[in-house]
Design a protein around this nucleic acid. Sequence first.
DNA 1: GCCGTTTTCGGCCCGACTGTTTTCAGTCG
Length: 571
Amino acid sequence: MTKNAEVANILKEIGLLLQVEGKDKFKFLAYLRGVRSITSLGEDITSVADRGELTKIQGIGKGLADAITSYLETGEVELLTELRTRVPVKVMELEAIPGVGPKTIQLVYEKLGITDLEGLERAALEGKLSGLPGLGQKTEEQILSGIGIVKSGLDRTILAEALSIAAKIEGELRTIPGIHQLVIAGSARRRRETIGDIDILVDASDSKLVMDTFVEYRDVSTITAHGDTKSSVRLIGGLQIDLRILPADSFGAGLQYFTGSVDHNVRLRSIAKKKGLTLNEYGLFKGEEKVAGEDEEGIYKALGMTMIEPELREDKGEIEAAQTGELPSLITVDDIRGDLHSHTDQSDGRNTIEEMLDAAETKGYEYYCVSDHTQSLTIANGLDEGRLLKRIEEIDELNASGRWKMKILKGAEVDILGQGALDIEDDVLSQLDVVTVSVHSRMKEEKKIMTERVCHAIENKHVHVLGHPTGRLILKRPEFEIDLEAVFETAAKNNVVMELNAHPKRLDLNAGNLRAAKRVGLKIAINTDAHVISELDNMQYGIFEARRGWVTKEDVINTFPLKKMLGLLKK
DNA sequence: GCCGTTTTCGGCCCGACTGTTTTCAGTCG
């Protein structure tokens, strides 16, 4: 777990415990707001704390800042320790159950002394919950099914998977006659890395037919809501899908509203309020009169700003930038002229070099770099100097063959060894067009050692790109302990490019780190790291993450023509 | 607890849906 996630959890637990204890609900909401800010901070909270700028974060005031500081310095927060003694309830595990909120936790604790998930499950199975004030048979069943979901551990899905599920449902719904508009909204539209649920918005002639078709979709395991304008289902596998019907004349307002984020929308509403307007999912209103709502652009315009792309809607400065017309022009997948990181069956890839090149050529690329693993990665059958030299000759011949219009670049994904040395000799590295270096071993090294190791590796004069700089696997493995600020500084000095690895489970660097890299003037390479033909399509996920990181075409080396791109790599 | 180009006090997004009610509370997004 990253420091930010740890801090977010601590604050959330404090908020929940305060609420269960019966304190003012706005105090609880304030803690939750702080939690959201930190979760989507995009920068190490420790760095912010070191600069003394915690209260500059939206929603963090003196109280929360003190709690954070105390946690970072001592690993403890006095208030939390006290609360845990007074209210010995495992609020975090109870709150994670769908359908269970702070009020229910408070109720079952006070009436039945329930303090954890096991206790709640037992009570539900024994029928002790129904009969409590406000709780009946149905709620009891709902809680039991919610506990099942938590136990299955399937509460979040990576974006790529969510989009593919969404596309299938969309295909199904689009066969219904009279669908005028259909958009996948929510965090999927904002291209968040992981998705908790999918929101589908529909404008249709026969909304009842849409709803009925939706809840009968073949992969539905339970229907949790089935109304006139909103239905919710949970699929086999656990993903929740919400479908909302919107009228045509307020489709844009609904789309804006249900795309979020919450914090972005709260800011927009308050801006509307100051202008004497009200914003809700049906439109932007001046009294009774609707001034905007048919499309999103109209709403942003009426609020005095330019249209904000969904990927930026996180209340991370995009509103201010839109008010002054200073939003960046975000990169698109069409801007990409080549892929600088890919594998073949020479190491751990599945396709031959020819097959990969054929597939890459259909993307319309101007250049394509073959960069297999090197010898230390024995499990991947990495290349030693001899095999690499042969590969260099082979690529010269392939280029000369004229079979491919694009230029084939010679590369390698060179292993960074324990002390930061590389596992290929300099005189071989010097013959490659693109040298990417990556960490594949000893990933649990402590922060100082890992930082020095990576910095040392990128100081090698033949190194062009740092591959997947933090090593994370989304929902699987956290980032390395590494001081990225120091790495960025070293990279800037040595003209080393940061990779944005586009594999949907990596997305490394992430959006927040990309923004930080941009701030120190670093260039980015968005690469698929494809190990098989189909993974060449992963470029789109890299682009999504880049857009979330405010990245423009000019920030990315593989949007430039070959000559200029190679020039940028020169030392 | 946080926040302020009406405010340092008095608000805090708000509507849909469900379940348990008979007018509303809790959850969710």
